[in-house]
Design a protein around this nucleic acid. Structure first.
Length: 288
DNA sequence: CCGGACTCCTGTGCGC
DNA sequence: TGCGCACAGGAGTCCG
């Protein structure tokens, strides 16, 4: 997926089409991608639970989760998993024939009438309905750590002091820090000069300060560039992002470090491919 | 309780 | 060109 920058850019790209829009109807083509956050789990999800008949008042994001909220504070939380897409297709514009379209909303918006389309080939993503913001908070967002876009050095430091894992594994954990995935974990660790295998609680305060700043900066720059499009990510208009061209380590194993020229190495941490520069990224603490 | 491994899916790109 | 395999931006669940 799509990590935090992609979801935040998606949120901004959909806002003009959706905020203030009326949801005329919805078609759920695959029932098993939709879930209910509160109430009976077995009963079929109703169209009105998927916003049909509602007016959209806001789009919220926490980590990699995007919530579409009605003026009655009910709505849906969308997670794109690895391969999900959420696009607005204006009326009259032909949607390129595609499979794996799981849900389509008919939208009468302030700018355009059209369709909101959710597709997700691998189906690691999904939709969770909620009947109030409290329900969204308590049953889903509360389990997430602080949002990576605004993480402070103090908050990061106090959390890291308890972690007995490599720093890379901690950054990927959504209950620890919400929004960072494999691309931006590697990019932020490179920017902060910290080796991904560093033992989290051995990292000194000064380096944690650099890391918090690097996470915020990488997130901000990636959002502005429209996110990273590796394979399938597109925003609400179907446009890819440009940030992949700015990657310094992710996807560059075997190529020279942009700072020192040493060949970038790669390994596997927390079951994820990890790329780093053994010269520019210092290892703190001992592992095993 | 914690951390590591496995699992869910489809698509793509590589080597043979 | 075709086939099989490894791997991919995520994260819930199980097990030691």
């Amino acid at each position: 997926m799509p990590e935090l920058p992609e979801i935040e850019h998606l949120r901004r790209s959909l806002e003009p089409f959706l905020v203030g829009a009326a949801v005329i109807g919805v078609r759920l083509h695959r029932a098993d991608i939709a879930h209910r956050l509160g109430g009976p789990a077995r009963r079929r999800i109703l169209a009105r639970e998927l916003l049909a008949g509602s007016t959209i008042s806001s789009l919220l994001r926490h980590g990699k989760n995007l919530a579409i909220v009605s003026d009655e504070q009910s709505g849906i939380c969308v997670h794109l998993g690895m391969s999900g897409q959420l696009r607005f297709v204006p009326a009259g514009q032909k949607l390129a024939p595609s499979d794996h379209v799981h849900c389509v909303w008919r939208i009468a918006g302030p700018r355009d009438t059209g369709r909101l389309v959710f597709r997700d080939p691998r189906r690691f993503g999904g939709i969770w309905t909620f009947s109030s913001l409290e329900e969204l908070q308590q049953n889903r967002w509360q389990a997430l750590g602080p949002d990576a876009m605004s993480i402070s050095a103090a908050a990061l430091g106090s959390k890291l002091s308890k972690v007995k894992r490599p720093i890379k594994a901690a950054l990927l954990e959504q209950s620890f820090l919400a929004g960072v995935g494999n691309i931006y974990a590697d990019e932020a660790l490179f920017a902060a000069g910290i080796h991904p295998i560093s033992w989290a609680r051995e990292i000194p305060g000064q380096a944690i300060g650099r890391l918090a700043g690097a996470i915020r900066k990488v997130m901000r720059q990636a959002v502005e560039a429209g996110g990273s499009t590796i394979r399938s990510y597109v925003d609400g208009n179907g446009q890819g992002g440009e940030y992949a061209a700015a990657h310094k380590v992710y996807g560059r194993a075997g190529q020279p470090c942009v700072v020192c020229g040493r060949t970038l190495e790669h390994g596997r941490i927390a079951q994820r491919t990890t790329v780093f520069c053994a010269t520019c990224q210092r290892q703190y603490g001992y592992v095993r």
